[in-house]
Every structure is written in structure tokens, then in C-alpha cells.
């Protein structure tokens, strides 16, 4: 399928920007209360750079989104989401199949593990992106099943204990709160599903 990249990016940006307060509230429970603000700053910068970004071919455009996030987010989520978009830009073929999406997302998950020195189960964005990548790769994914899996996976971070990031300082007290990075990843995946389903 040909990905409607600009619509995807607009919708992801709009959803993240409007969820800024919610993400910051989640981060204030177990982190340093900046995730929403940081992501909002990053995606506002992406929107401001849009003309330059979409003058490039799709792969390069995704890399440019990643680079903007790296430069503008101002927290650990900058390099992390930057790595996600840069890896997608590198790995996605022109007209990706669902399995291609899975492979590209899986490559991003691998890159993110290295970047964040984290693994699945550490109460991070990987706990959403990892299961979704594996599900897409299996080839039997529907838009509905991907959306449900993203939501369920973000919820599944609530009882987890944080091993990485500021939340890890809390030890057992990090249990009982959804990870803000898992939630922002869920929001992005849901946005992509909605666009691909024709209801941005």
C-alpha cells in the first residue's frame, strides 16, 4: 500500500499535541512531568518544518522527522522517538505490505533497545511497540487487532515495575501507573490505524 505520509504525520502530531496534558500527568506520577510538553514541542517543530520535510522522498522525510524530534524534544524521548522515525525511514520500502511495516517497526524496536538500554517488560514505550511489531510481522494483523493490541499493551504497563528512566528511581512505587512513553506510543499507533481506516 502507498502510505499517506503527510496525513499520517498530521494526525500523529495533532493527537500527541492534544494529549500533552494527559502525557504530562502520567509522567508526573512516575517521572519528571515533562513528557507531554516535550512531545508537544517536538511535534510542533515537525509541523513547522513540514514544507522542508515533505520536499524529500518518503524515507528521507521520515528521517527528517526523526532528526527534528532529536533536536527539539529536549528529553530522553527525543532520541528515542527520533530513533523510531529515523529507523522507519531507513527500513520502509516504497509501498510497504503489512509485514514490511512489521519488519521496519521491529528494526526500530531493536534500535530503541540499544538507544534506551532497555528491553521489553521494563515499563517503557517498547512494551507497546514490541508487541505491535511482532503482531504486524506475523502477517495476520488487521487494523482493528493492531489498535486493540496497542491499547491493551499500554494498559499492561500499569502493573509493571520500571527498570529504566527516572521512573526506576521509584522502584516498587512505579507500580500502578501507566508508562507515559507506552501511552504516547499507543496514541501514535492508534492515529496511524485511524488514518489507514479512513477516519483521521
Amino acid at each position: 500500500m502507498a502510505l499517506p505520509l503527510e496525513t499520517l504525520l498530521d494526525t500523529v502530531s495533532a493527537r500527541i499535541i492534544s494529549a500533552a496534558d494527559e502525557l504530562t500527568a502520567l509522567d508526573s506520577a512516575i517521572g519528571d512531568a515533562d513528557h507531554g510538553l516535550n512531545m508537544k514541542r517536538g511535534f510542533e517543530a515537525v509541523q513547522a518544518d513540514k514544507a522542508g520535510i515533505f520536499a524529500k522522498p518518503p524515507g528521507e522525510a521520515l528521517k527528517a522527522v526523526g532528526m527534528t524530534l532529536v533536536m527539539k524534544v529536549g528529553g530522553a524521548s527525543g532520541p528515542l522517538y527520533g530513533t523510531l522515525f529515523m529507523t522507519l525511514g531507513k527500513e520502509l520500502p516504497e509501498n510497504p505490505s503489512v509485514a514490511d511495516l512489521g519488519r521496519a517497526l521491529q528494526a526500530s524496536v531493536t534500535a530503541l533497545k540499544a538507544r534506551g538500554k532497555a528491553d521489553i517488560g521494563n515499563k517503557t514505550m517498547l512494551d507497546v511497540l514490541g508487541p505491535v511489531a511482532a503482531h504486524l510481522e506475523s502477517g495476520s494483523a488487521s487494523i482493528e487487532s493492531v489498535r486493540a493490541l496497542a491499547t491493551e499493551s499500554a494498559k499492561a504497563t500499569i502493573p509493571m515495575k520500571a527498570i529504566r528512566g527516572r521512573a526506576s528511581f521509584l522502584g516498587d512505587r512505579s507500580i500502578g501507573h501507566m508508562d507515559p512513553g507506552a501511552r504516547s506510543s499507543e496514541i501514535m499507533i492508534t492515529a496511524v490505524c485511524d488514518v489507514l481506516e479512513g477516519k483521521p
Binding site: 515533562d34 516535550n38 514541542r41 529536549g74 528529553g75 527525543g78 532520541p79
Partner: peptide, 13 residues
């Protein structure tokens, strides 16, 4: 020190 807006955070730039 500080994020790109000057608030608490860090900036690659």
C-alpha cells in the same frame, strides 16, 4: 543545561 526552550531538560543541539 536546559531543553531547547530553556526549561529543565537537555538539548542535543
Amino acid at each position: 543545561g536546559g531543553n531547547p526552550d530553556g526549561g529543565l531538560g537537555t538539548s542535543v543541539e
